[in-house]
Design a protein around this nucleic acid. Structure first.
Lengths: 139, 139
DNA sequence: TATTGTTATACTCTATAACTATA
DNA sequence: TATAGTTATAGAGTATAACAATA
């Protein structure tokens, strides 16, 4: 049975592949008690150092109210801290702890593995092309 | 603020773009009382003519129990029928009605429009490349 | 015994509205 | 007035298990 690809094909293909990526990463992260969205929050906090929760939501395309509960989970697990912002007492800056950094090192490998599996049929060149095109989609 | 793209980058980009595509299509379909998953079921049923519900689920990557309620909705709206299978009395074949075909003609244009908007930044060549690469991702 | 469809259920994800404390 | 964070909530998506009818 061939795959059915409806018109509006690309949106469908993106959604299906994205869903698969998320499910696979969730499965890989299960032993850590984390899910893919925790990983993206942890990763962005580490790589962009000290984002506010609002910034995290913006950058990751996640609703602010969802960021709160994701950071709650990560804080409870000791992987991030909420620090106060020097200039604005409303704002809370999310900082990755040492434990968080260590967890991130491990889970990053898992995320790479999930990507590798998904992209198994593509050459290195094709992977770069795909990534470049995805980065240029309308945001 | 640049976009944060964690390692496991491609999976993240796919999920974000796919989510956007689904949300946009849901919004476009709202006047029809349909959502994107109804559209994919309707589209696959029309283009592959008379699939069983199990086949629909397989082809679209949707859980069988979800197919039931999607087909329920479409049947209630008069867009598909459940016919009996000639050789297997367990199986129910999903057939698009005339009304369904007409709705599909209209909604297909909406789906194309959503794709167009998402792909606005890419040339025709780049769009074809993207689609071709997406079709080759691990299923 | 295995499969198709179905129902029930639970959990995650997404989105919105309302509130507080600050700006 | 507006913004950052928070809480509560509801709807959609996803997944699993159990069951009836049929193979």
């Amino acid at each position: 049975m061939p795959h059915a690809v409806p018109s509006g094909r690309v949106g469908f293909l993106l959604a299906r592949a994205g869903g698969r990526a998320i499910r696979n990463l969730n499965r890989a992260l299960e032993p850590f008690g984390l899910r893919s969205r925790h990983y993206t929050v942890l990763s962005a906090s580490a790589e962009q150092g000290g984002l506010s929760q609002r910034e995290l939501g913006e950058v990751l395309g996640v609703d602010p109210s969802a960021v709160v509960s994701l950071v709650d989970d990560l804080e409870r697990a000791g992987l991030v801290r909420r620090d106060s912002h020097p200039d604005d007492r409303r704002t809370r800056v999310v900082v990755v702890t040492e434990a968080g950094r260590s967890t991130l090192d491990t889970t990053r490998e898992l995320a790479r593995g999930v990507d590798d599996e998904l992209l198994a049929g593509l050459s290195e060149d094709e992977r770069r092309t795909l990534e470049r095109l995805l980065l240029r989609l309308a945001s």
